[in-house]
């Protein structure tokens, strides 16, 4: 509960102090239910009910529309047991995890380094800021088209730069392993790190300048200053962006789907791609749902850990 709301409540209903159940139904607060209703309905239809349904389908042997001549039956945990031995699922989970970790290291890392460099005023800072936010504003499908073209094996401009690379790029950037996976990480980095750097930049404005100065006077090295003064001030932002970068790997669909399609040999098939293909290519809603539930559990776990850190931080303040 917010402080203004708390004070306001005390002002309006002084006699109900401390009695939550009564005060939460006070006349003033009743309107909250009314104005939250549209969002509740929208979330129920498109989020809550579908999650429950996904859970239900994952316990059945349902197939997607078209196979209705077969009766859907409850088969318990069979789908989940199947997943444990399903090489496609295990592979996509591994790919997603590696992708998520690389997202954190590359995108959050690059975002932080960029923000530290750009933080001081310089000529053309506005332009650089503008350039940095462009990839974020640029739609996924358009980005995918650009990268399909740049990384095209026969005519892409990447062919011009390949000659300086220390490794073999014969198979093409989007069609051979491990280049395809590297490309996907690179594309995600292009898409996200500039935005992260903008967020870091804003957080850096909150670093106490006098402390930095004092540490400098005391002879602290650049790294010591970063560790003891700068980083603690931006830690909440750092954690938030790590969570976002991790979740990004579990959400990104269009850019992977349109560039590599999950291939070659499923090396870029993340859970998201796997769910989509299982459902709409192989029409196996049950297995797709079980995979989906698994992804939901992982992301819900991350959300809970994040909430825990936030609550702890709120308490400290």
């Amino acid at each position: 509960m917010t402080r203004p709301a708390k004070l306001l409540k005390a002002l309006v209903t002084p006699r109900n102090r401390g009695v939550t159940s009564v005060s939460s139904f006070s006349k003033k607060n009743r309107i909250a239910y009314l104005i939250i209703l549209p969002t509740v309905i929208l979330s129920s239809i498109f989020v809550v009910v579908p999650i429950v349904q996904t859970l239900w389908i994952s316990f059945t042997n349902q197939v997607l529309a078209g196979g209705q001549n077969r009766k859907t039956a409850f088969i318990g945990l069979k789908n989940y047991k199947g997943l444990a031995h399903d090489p496609h699922f295990l592979n996509s989970f591994r790919v997603t995890l590696i992708y998520a970790v690389l997202n954190i290291i590359c995108s959050v890392g690059a975002g932080l380094v960029t923000a530290l460099i750009v933080n001081k005023k310089f000529k053309g800072r506005g332009i650089v800021r503008g350039i940095l936010t462009m990839p974020w504003a640029f739609p996924d499908v358009a980005s995918a088209i650009i990268f399909v073209w740049i990384l095209n094996a026969a005519f892409g401009v990447i062919g011009y730069f390949n000659q300086w690379l220390p490794f073999n790029t014969q198979g093409g950037w989007l069609t051979s392993s491990p280049l395809a996976f590297i490309s996907v990480v690179g594309m995600s980095m292009w898409k996200t790190f500039p935005f992260y750097s903008i967020v870091f930049l804003s957080a850096l404005q909150g670093v106490p300048e006098d402390l930095v100065e004092a540490a400098t006077v005391d002879g602290a090295s650049w790294f010591q200053r970063f560790k003891t003064v700068v980083f603690p001030a931006i830690r909440p932002t750092f954690i938030l962006l790590c969570v976002l970068a991790f979740i990004f790997a579990f959400r990104q669909f269009s850019m992977i789907y349109l560039t590599t399609g999950g291939g070659p040999d499923e090396t870029t098939q993340t859970l998201t791609i796997s769910v989509f293909l299982t459902a709409f290519k192989f029409f196996d809603s049950a297995v797709a749902s079980a995979t989906g539930v698994f992804g939901l559990i992982v992301t819900a776990g991350v959300a809970l850990i994040f909430l825990y850190f936030q609550a702890k931080q709120d308490k400290e303040q």
Binding site: P50, L64, A300
Partner: peptide, 15 residues
Amino acid sequence: LFTQMMPEVLVIIPI
């Protein structure tokens, strides 16, 4: 918060 973090594709079948 969960909706915001949830990968949309995971509920694509019921929707």
